[in-house]
Amino acid sequence: MSHQRYPSHDAIKEPHSISLKQQTLAPPLSKSTTLEPSPASLAYQTKGSTNPSPFLLSPILNLPFSFGSAYTGETFSCTLCANNDLPSSSRAIRDVKIEAEMKTPSVGRAQKLELKTQHGEGPRDLEPGETVQGVVGFDLKEEGNHVLAVTVSYYEVSETSGRTRTFRKLYQFICKSSLIVRTKMSPLPALPSGRRRWVVEAQLENCSEDVMQLETVGMSVEDGLRWKGCNWEVAGAKGPVVKPGEVEQVCFVVETVDEGGVMKALPDGRLVFGVLEISWRGEMGNRGYLSTGKLGTKVRT
């Protein structure tokens, strides 16, 4: 994540007493150990059988590297730390407050993010060397440039005076597409009862760099319609594992509830079925969720 420090809002040119640090919090990685040929080599020291050596993976958790890719459908999680970097207690730091906003590619105005801290949202006083830490989360829905804007404000008290100071830091990152969904709708012969039916096929392509296990695929249909999946849940099986670059095909049948039922049509004469909803889990359980735009088909005349 590239970042850039905005000039402070106040006119004072001296450096700030507070530093801001961030680290993305992807799910921690279960550490892949290097090869373990001898007892000397355990990934960590233990007395019991809590190390599955010689197996390649071990349960000790590595914090994520600071770089990493963000993908649509996943939750962006990040910790923010404001630190009192003053060497001694020459000046006191009061009422430290961190505010975070996310700017997405489409929405013009930034969205305010809730900062979860141990001590609640209120401002805090910081002794030298102390840190106030918060965690923010944001559901990524769009591809493209995102900017996390963090504003830190605090009140600096010296022996003779006090002043409020503020600075802002911007962290920019690119959110990539995780799953490409291609759909196709085709009519099925109507049922004897007169209900109209369509088949909705979708190809889900994993275009991220990680393996994903599909959890559920389903539809959220318009009134007057109902749907039925023809996928793994019918057989009571677990969702398939889709490796990077692989494609999984899913299929649904959509039908009208009533005979010859009324359906919503868009101005351009398309019939609207509803949206496709897909949820998956990635490495270390990382959750993903995506829903498509409205799916529909042209009315055949």
Binding site: L25, P28, Y44, G48, T50, I60, T79, K116, T117
Partner: peptide, 22 residues
């Protein structure tokens, strides 16, 4: 129960994710 390095490290990671870095 025990002084296992892995357990300690993982507890610390957990605390960081909870915003209790210190």
């Amino acid at each position: 129960e025990s002084q296992d390095e892995m357990v300690g490290v993982n507890a610390a990671v957990c605390l960081l994710y909870l915003g209790r870095l210190q």
